[in-house]
């Protein structure tokens, strides 16, 4: 099993506290993501963005949430045997978990390199597979945690704070 963690240094204290405590979210949203459903993929991320918009989250933060979530949702659609998204909304941040049923990442560090991709031709023809998904998620999130292994499920989780430091 391999693991990758990125923490925005500006939120180090808050993120460490989050990992220690068991907080009760104000709201939880659940979505099933089907294999290779390129028509409906993106619905979950659009719904998460809309929900946070209604709660008064600012536009620049909504954009970061939408981009991170959409890239991760596309990854489940394009690369996995299906999975689900669990979005937990807290008063100061949103925590989104993307869980799939495998086949898993052989080397997470390699997947973090911009331009590296295992996408097939069909996926590339649709405009995906540029190898920028995970780097894009990292760029737009305050916390990124990936746990995976070959022939295993992958967990990608992100945290984004509503106030930018």
């Amino acid at each position: 099993m391999s693991e990758y963690t990125y923490i925005n240094p500006k939120f180090e204290k808050e993120i460490n506290e989050f990992s220690k405590k068991t907080l009760v979210p104000e709201l939880t949203l659940n979505y099933d993501i089907k294999v290779r459903d390129f028509v409906n993929t993106g619905n979950a991320s659009a719904d998460i963005k809309l929900t946070l918009k209604r709660l008064g989250v600012s536009s620049p933060v909504l954009r970061r949430v939408a981009i991170s979530s959409y890239e991760a949702e596309i990854n489940i659609t394009a690369h996995s045997k299906g999975g689900n998204i669990i979005c937990n909304v807290y008063p100061e941040f949103v925590h989104i978990q993307f869980k799939d049923k495998g086949p898993g990442l052989k080397d997470i560090e390699q997947a973090m390199i911009p331009g590296w991709s295992t996408a097939d031709d069909a996926v590339r023809e649709m405009g995906f597979g540029a190898g920028l998904g995970l780097p894009n998620i990292k760029k737009n999130s305050d916390y990124l945690h990936i746990v995976s292994a070959e022939n295993s499920p992958t967990l990608v989780e992100i945290l984004i704070f509503y106030i930018e430091k």
């Binding site: 390129f38 619905n43 963005k49 954009r63 939408a66 405009g127 995906f128």
Partner: peptide, 15 residues
């Protein structure tokens, strides 16, 4: 763009 699939419209939900 030259992309004409569903996801190009979906993008407008994100950005």
């Amino acid at each position: 763009t030259g992309i004409t699939n569903h996801q190009i419209i979906r993008l407008s939900d994100m950005i």
